[in-house]
């Protein structure tokens, strides 16, 4: 368990929904996790999970709007040893039932991102997006 256990902290930032923003999403997460003293190993995993979730917004929720000016919000909160990462976007509504990784015997590249998220995080939950948001994804990890 890291020093984060004693820290309550929330930060959020918005990003244009573009693949070119993914690097900025990662930088933001690394900065926040640095402040929270999360160890390198876990930090790398969390950054990967968050980047994959942000990538899913670009790739799926905005599949038909590659040049959108919309922004997505990433919010990182830590409270009582629990890390919660929220994603908000105004893209196509996600059907949580369809968000799954592919079958294990189907060796194709797609679906790995969702698999990584599920491997790294304790919980992945789609909540109702409150206006103006359409989608609200919450990833949780107990520290």
């Amino acid at each position: 368990m890291s020093e984060l256990a004693h820290t309550n902290h929330t930060e959020k930032k918005d990003f244009l929904v573009r693949s070119s923003s993914l690097k900025d999403v990662r930088s933001f997460c690394r900065e926040v996790f640095e402040k929270l003293h999360i160890d390198q190993n876990l930090k790398d995993e969390l950054v990967l999970a968050i980047a994959e979730a942000a990538q899913n917004i670009v790739k799926h929720a905005y599949k038909d709007s590659p040049n959108t000016e919309d922004k997505m919000v990433v919010q990182i909160s830590c409270k009582d040893n629990k890390l919660q990462i929220g994603f908000y976007d105004m893209g196509t509504p996600v059907d949580p039932g369809k968000v799954k990784h592919r079958e294990i015997d189907n060796v194709k590249p797609g679906g790995l991102g969702t698999f990584f998220i599920q491997q790294i995080m304790d919980a992945v939950e789609f909540k109702d997006g409150k206006k103006p948001w359409i989608n609200h994804l919450v990833l949780t990890k107990q520290l």
């Binding site: 990967l48 994959e52 990538q55 590249p109 790995l112 991102g113 698999f115 990584f116």
Partner: peptide, 13 residues
């Protein structure tokens, strides 16, 4: 320094 599922996809392809 960093690779995500998109990079892994390139390796698989």
């Amino acid at each position: 320094e960093y690779m995500d599922s998109s990079g892994i996809s390139v390796l698989i392809e």
